[in-house]
């Protein structure tokens, strides 16, 4: 299950920042393209399990899934690709190139103030 591996990388990065801030982290925001095959529940469950006993114990993860993007071959418009009926919202063409999926990014961490 690759969510466990991702949870470990996340925990490592958050722990480093937590040591720097010397504060208690409460929430981390993550974003990723939907083709990253990440299941939020499994990721949160895995994170919760490995964060036990560390400074990150009990913190929340919020995952934002970014839609796929396409670029229209007809009018060059960049648009969010709707999986069921992918087409350009500007000119209606269904001829487009799929743009690379958004990577998995740790966007921000919230810390408690004393």
């Amino acid at each position: 299950m690759h969510e466990t591996m991702i949870a470990q990388s996340l925990l490592a990065t958050i722990s480093t920042e937590t040591a720097k801030q010397n504060a208690k982290p409460t929430c981390a925001k993550i974003s990723c393209g939907i083709l990253n095959a990440i299941n939020d529940e499994i990721l949160c469950f895995a994170f919760e399990a490995i964060a036990k006993g560390t400074a990150c114990e009990g913190m929340k993860l919020e995952v934002e899934h970014k839609p796929m993007q396409g670029q229209c071959k007809n009018c060059n418009q960049v648009f969010d690709v709707e999986l069921h009926r992918p087409q350009c919202p500007k000119c209606g063409s269904d001829q487009f190139d799929l743009l690379p999926d958004a990577p998995l990014v740790l966007e921000e961490i919230e810390f408690q103030t004393e």
Partner: peptide
Amino acid sequence: MYKVNIGKKILSANEE
């Protein structure tokens, strides 16, 4: 509560 911007890729080790 305060926020810290990170903006770091998480699978970067695999990407490298």
